[in-house]
Design a protein around this nucleic acid. Structure first.
Lengths: 198, 198
DNA sequence: ATGATTATTTAACATTTGTAAAAGGAATCG
DNA sequence: CGATTCCTTTTACAAATGTTAAATAATCAT
């Protein structure tokens, strides 16, 4: 059981475990990805990425929770959450190169693996399997987003809340209700009312 | 000005023009795609794809308009529209292989170029440029979808309506209001009220 | 053209959600 | 521990949207 491969048993292994479930890539490809990664540790409530900058990093959540947020008429709106073992990025900026009106904030003391997106996109030419891996990653994310639209477009706030609590009870345990409310597209007061029903 | 390339000046040329703007592919790749395409002409109000089947075709709208729709508690809901020179597919089924609860209906006498998605995905191995082209296509579609969530999540119905009419006046000219209403996430009556404001 | 069908608007009322302010709880920090 | 701050709930009222039904308007088929 020799360990000649630098990417095994390192601080990056949760990321490669995650990748392996989606598309197998060669050890050379893993090394190439590892070379464009780095670790960020962010304390609770701080920003991992601030509003106004162009998204040039795709983050893997090793530990903790993050949310993408923005301001709409002065009020804080949560676009999405990311828990452990998932990726988070401000896609609309990542793929357009435009500055993002959104930021990424951390809700617990958290640890991320950051992947430089310009360097990653460069790797696509050299490693077709890396391109394929990330194609699949974003295709899945796209599908989630389409399903989310369906939820926002024609389910009541109450239905959305109950769907959320059933699908992932972690939401309620680890995320303040004020953030859940805007994620559901309603106010905090409205959410309290829904919760009071039973 | 010889025309030795079979994909030029054919009924498929609008599709390849569309592709060219996103990512150049070789003539061989074009030929390979052409081999898995076919034309569908569908009369107004008919279904191009019916509810309940798995999505195995990506359509390019050559002429006309189509919409993706489904039923929520018996009422018809429009998820999205596609005009000329754009692609339409039930993504959540295309990428998961699961049957779709959604259908595609045609709103004018329309003409489509259908691309077989299983055959297309097979081409990805042989033609990395085809994989790259469609990666870019779906990345753009993903970005649109993320922006749509922002719109549904925290803009009022009135804001959404005015944004729609300004961005694409074609909507009002060519699409019945009853379909626009559910696309905006509101009822027809509500939309009439908004329109009556001025 | 004419009648039938379909689409859109209007009206009245019910329900949901928003807003603002206050009160109660929970967490945090010195 | 105590004080402060932040989070959540509650209250009362306003605004937006839904529901049902009826009235117009537009379109379609013969």
């Amino acid at each position: 059981m020799t360990d000649h491969s630098p990417h095994l048993h390192t601080e990056y292994s949760p990321l490669f475990d995650y990748f392996n479930n989606l598309h197998r890539i060669s050890d050379e490809a893993k090394d190439a990805i590892e070379a464009i990664c780095n670790i960020s540790k962010i304390p609770k409530n701080k920003d991992l990425q601030s509003i106004g900058h162009t998204c040039r990093t795709i983050y893997f959540v090793k530990k903790g929770i993050a949310r993408i947020y923005y301001y709409k008429d002065g009020t804080d709106v949560t676009e999405s959450f990311a828990f452990e073992n998932s990726l988070i990025a401000r896609v609309e900026s990542l793929f357009t190169g435009k500055p993002s009106r959104k930021g990424i904030q951390v809700l617990e003391d958290s640890e991320f693996i950051g992947i430089s997106s310009p360097l990653l996109f460069d790797l696509y030419d050299q490693f077709p399997d890396i391109e394929r891996l990330f194609r699949k990653i974003f295709e899945s994310a796209y599908v989630e987003t389409v399903n989310r639209i369906e939820s926002l477009q024609f389910h009541s706030a109450e239905e959305r809340y109950h769907a959320l609590t059933q699908e992932s009870p972690d939401f309620l345990k680890r995320i303040p209700l004020k953030y859940i409310a805007s994620y559901l597209g309603i106010t905090q007061v409205s959410l309290s009312r829904i919760r009071a029903l039973r």
